[in-house]
Design a protein around this nucleic acid. Structure first.
Lengths: 206, 206
DNA sequence: CCGTGCATGGCACTCGGTGTCAAGAGGTAA
DNA sequence: TTACCTCTTGACACCGAGTGCCATGCACGG
């Protein structure tokens, strides 16, 4: 019954509390609605104090949204790992599809989280903030890979924005179908629609 | 010194208080930063109580963001007023450009507001919420005008999202250039980049 | 002149979020 | 074993956003 020997007891305990907290939060929030649950309630359910809750999560929204927050890093990594000469539409399609598929894999939990986020205004707002940062990241990565100056050329911002628009549409469909639709196929269809703009790479600076 | 005769005194007073409030808020927030200003402070500067502030604005962010909130209705109206047979890229270009130009007209105030929003996380989040609603509105309008079913076809959501991506890029540039760049010209450049996707109208449902 | 309606201010209250501090648990060295 | 150190925690006080409630006052219509 040994886990990693080089993992200290304190670290394991931290993970345990963190899981306890997000589990309690997810259950309560999905059950009663976002506004009807207080942080004291979540903390009490997890067996800790409110103060401790804020030592693990920065806000009430965070405990839900953090679950999807890794996708930003995943996207940037996916884009960075694509071969340099690849068409933008193909590279960006994988940028979105790979993390999306990874998320949909443990779909038991992911689906519930996504549905909760999309249906709750406060959570959706936080999620949009994340996407906003992802867009800047992707735009920077794109500009670098294409040798464009992000300060004069609109393309990186636009292409990143289009990719995330596709991502958002896919997420909505997937959530709306209760996970029945295939995320990878949805992504392909969305990118088929936006590809003509992504691959028309004529620089748009004056 | 008569204003509109059919406008009651109470209504005029309401407008006056509202202007006083948003003026005070804008000045204080731009000066000291969003978090460093309390609502009591804003209300006191405007000569009313905190309770009254919340009778005019739903939140601290609202007093700033509401300034741009009309653009949503403006966009939908602009789109609805375009001739039915028009190419989507042209119709959507006007959808974005017209309200944008109207906003940039009283640029003294608009520029300050936009810069404040884009540089403040909380305000930007609220603004993204608005854009999110605008996207749904535009998608609905687009679906109707093109005779597409928004539940099966991805195009309306994607096209609306692309248009707003362009809008956001334009807004950033305009703000970043301190109003030097021409919003209309920026909009044209952005739409030149995304037009190939907007006009490739092949329905994308299975 | 008198009711009616509306805007306001004041107050108490809830809740999200933060700073501070003292106490406990575990790990380490003498 | 004892002394020490670090990390985590709970408790408490505190701030600010936002809301419900009620009494007051001012404009308007009769």
């Amino acid at each position: 019954m040994s886990s990693r020997p080089d993992v200290t007891m304190a670290q394991r305990k931290r993970r345990l509390v963190s899981n306890e907290l997000s589990e309690a939060a997810l259950q309560l929030l999905a059950l009663k609605g976002f506004d009807a649950v207080t942080i004291d309630e979540i903390a009490a359910t997890a067996g800790v104090s409110k103060r401790t809750f804020f030592r693990y999560f920065a806000s009430k929204e965070d405990v839900v949204v953090q679950f999807l927050a890794d996708m930003g890093a995943g996207m940037r990594a996916a884009l960075a790992s694509r071969p340099l000469g690849e068409q933008p539409s193909v590279a960006l399609r994988h940028t979105v599809r790979d993390p999306m598929a990874a998320c949909a894999d443990h779909s038991e939990r992911a689906l519930r989280v996504v549905q909760l986020i999309l249906r709750t205004a406060a959570l959706r707002a936080r999620f949009l903030e994340h996407q906003d940062r992802w867009r800047d990241d992707l735009a920077a990565e794109l500009a670098q890979r294409l040798g464009l100056d992000p300060d004069t050329d609109l393309y990186p911002q636009l292409a990143a924005g289009m990719a995330l628009t596709a991502f958002d549409a896919v997420l909505r469909r997937w959530s709306g179908s209760d996970g029945a639709d295939d995320p990878a196929e949805l992504t392909d269809r969305a990118f088929a629609a936006i590809a003509p703009a992504l691959d028309a790479v004529g620089p748009s600076n004056p």
